[in-house]
């Protein structure tokens, strides 16, 4: 008996997407991407910083660089936090390491495998690369990375931004389809790695035209055994944000969390008003 519990009312939390960028890179392209200069207007990286980084880290860092060029005003990196939600990151390096371990023993295990192939590695690399002093965390690691990353970033922003944060970078990354590896850990074929970077800020501090991400929870009980949700395609999610930013989307686009919450991408209120006027 839990008569003390509050009624389960519907609830909404939201934040604004100040900038976003989606990047795809085929496996064979990633080696070059490690040392590629940043785009014009983006901050520079420490020399050879991505030398030992996982593929998802390399592509996620590129997405942050691309998104940085789209900001109307520079954001102080030191005042940002990072939430990174990769999916099965570090698998290629782990496979190579295990193949070597079996034949060459402990001496062959790379000291980079823990800092570069763990769940926190993407977030840690972005935090270090750009000198961010807000908290950084890795989230999820599995097939629900997108909804879990969105929920975590919204939770951080909704509960009061930690000092000294003005904004949180949310990075979601995966392989378009999981690469199959040979017995040495080398990918077969040409898998595509992809990442979406979003700079999120409290709704109250945002411009009216910026797209929103909103989390809504239903009233009443959560489902006892929620249905499995189909994988949400990262590219489609990025396109939905593009449409909302351009004011083209009158309808919102949603991701269902396995526990019953629903994350929606929404056009900024001023964009919607403007679009409706044009439509009229």
């Amino acid at each position: 008996m839990i008569a003390h519990l509050r009624p389960h009312r519907p609830r909404r939390a939201a934040c604004a997407i100040q900038a976003h960028a989606y990047v795809e890179a085929a496996f064979s392209r990633i080696a070059a991407l490690r040392d590629e200069p940043p785009p014009t207007g983006a901050p520079s990286l420490p020399t050879r910083f991505l030398r030992h980084a996982d593929e998802q880290t390399v592509v996620a860092v590129r997405a942050v660089l691309e998104a940085s060029t789209l900001l109307p005003e520079p954001v102080a990196a030191a005042r940002c936090g990072v939430v990174a939600a990769p999916c099965q990151a570090g698998r290629i390096a782990t496979a190579r390491s295990l193949a070597l371990l079996q034949t060459g023993g402990a001496v062959t295990v790379s000291p980079h495998i823990v800092p570069q192939c763990s769940l926190h590695s993407v977030a840690g690399a972005v935090s270090v690369a750009f000198g961010m002093h807000g908290p950084h965390v890795g989230i999820g690691g599995g097939p629900d990375a997108l909804s879990e990353g969105l929920f975590t970033a919204l939770s951080l922003i909704d509960s009061g931004m930690p000092d000294p944060c003005d904004a949180v970078w949310l990075l979601v990354s995966d392989w378009e389809s999981e690469p199959e590896l040979d017995s040495h850990g080398e990918p077969l074929g040409e898998p595509v790695c992809r990442a979406l970077a979003m700079l999120l800020a409290p709704e109250a501090a945002a411009a009216g035209t910026e797209p929103r991400i909103a989390l809504v929870t239903p009233a009443g009980q959560w489902p006892a055994d929620p249905p499995d949700e189909p994988d949400v395609d990262l590219a489609a999610f990025a396109r939905a944000i593009d449409m909302c930013r351009s004011g083209m989307a009158l309808a919102s686009w949603a991701v269902n969390c396995p526990w019953g919450g629903r994350v929606r991408v929404e056009a900024g209120t001023e964009s919607l008003v403007s679009s409706r006027r044009e439509a009229a």
């Binding site: 763990s118 769940l119 926190h120 977030a123 840690g124 908290p135 989230i139 975590t152 006892a224 526990w259």
Partner: peptide, 14 residues
């Protein structure tokens, strides 16, 4: 447990 379920990683502070 029917609520949100998340893994969070921050190395030794996880």
């Amino acid at each position: 447990l029917r609520g949100p379920a998340l893994t969070v990683a921050a190395a030794c502070a996880s």
